[in-house]
């Protein structure tokens, strides 16, 4: 029975429709359509909540078309709807009408990760003052072990998705200065209860990646990455202000 209902949610199923009490085929269809519409509508709504910037970028009608198509192919695996949409970005890459926006898929990957971060437990981190105090006591900087909190992750894209995302977080997005067709590296973490992202340089990305892999400060310093200078003092000051360290100690 339920297999039939399930099939009928996405396509007309004559056998199931026959079990519905009604005065004719069109009434059966009207009744059954309520469920079909509810499921579709609720999944499109869920995707709208998970990918708000993507929706803002492409507009309501286009987003609905994309979301409806995706939800036909991919239903949620879990009743926890904030998990839904983990393959939405992959779908967008194959969605022909979205080909003119090649950065859209990576933007969706970013939005999805930020929502997952929002739902993650908030890791304990050092306040700016605590971090400064630890650093001031350091004897041998090279052996410093700078541990990033469990909320930290890195992203890279051939497109400026972080800047695009952050611009859309403003009440009136100003995209006049933004060239989205340039690579960008991002640090994703939590600011209070919510996932957030910071645009970082490629050299900072390499540095943070080395820290995440467990390297000590001396080993983590990046070599000259694509010509961009790496300013350790400035980078550390920035990271301490963002409160991303769970621990700083000499090892």
């Amino acid at each position: 029975m339920q297999t039939e209902f399930h099939a009928a949610l996405w396509q007309q199923d004559k056998h199931l429709l026959r079990d519905i009490k009604a005065r004719g085929a069109s009434e059966q269809d009207s009744r059954f359509s309520v469920y079909r519409n509810n499921v579709q509508h609720s999944l499109i709504e869920a995707l709208s909540d998970i990918f708000p910037v993507c929706k803002q970028l492409v507009g309501e009608a286009f987003f609905h078309t994309m979301a409806r198509q995706y939800s036909y192919q991919t239903l949620p695996k879990s009743p926890v709807l904030s998990d839904y949409g983990d393959t939405f970005a992959d779908f967008i890459q194959t969605f022909v009408p979205a080909q003119s926006l090649p950065y859209l898929a990576d933007l969706c990957r970013l939005e999805y990760r930020l929502l997952q971060l929002t739902h993650q437990a908030e890791a304990a981190t050092l306040t700016l003052a605590q971090a400064q105090q630890r650093l001031s006591q350091v004897q041998q900087p090279d052996t410093l072990q700078l541990t990033l909190s469990a909320n930290c992750e890195l992203m890279q894209s051939p497109y400026a998705i972080g800047s695009l995302y952050l611009a859309h977080r403003q009440a009136t997005p100003d995209l006049s200065q933004l060239n989205v067709y340039q690579p960008e590296a991002l640090l994703l973490t939590k600011d209070g209860l919510y996932g957030c992202c910071y645009v970082i340089s490629q050299a900072q990305h390499a540095f943070l990646n080395a820290l995440i892999e467990g390297h000590r400060l001396g080993e983590a310093l990046p070599e000259d990455v694509s010509g961009t200078a790496f300013d350790l003092g400035q980078t550390l000051a920035q990271l301490m202000k963002w409160q991303v360290f769970s621990d700083i100690k000499e090892s």
Partner: peptide, 14 residues
């Protein structure tokens, strides 16, 4: 019901 095999239909079905 709302679940079918590994899919969740996000509605309260009859």
């Amino acid at each position: 019901w709302s679940r079918h095999q590994n899919s969740f239909l996000n509605d309260l079905l009859p």
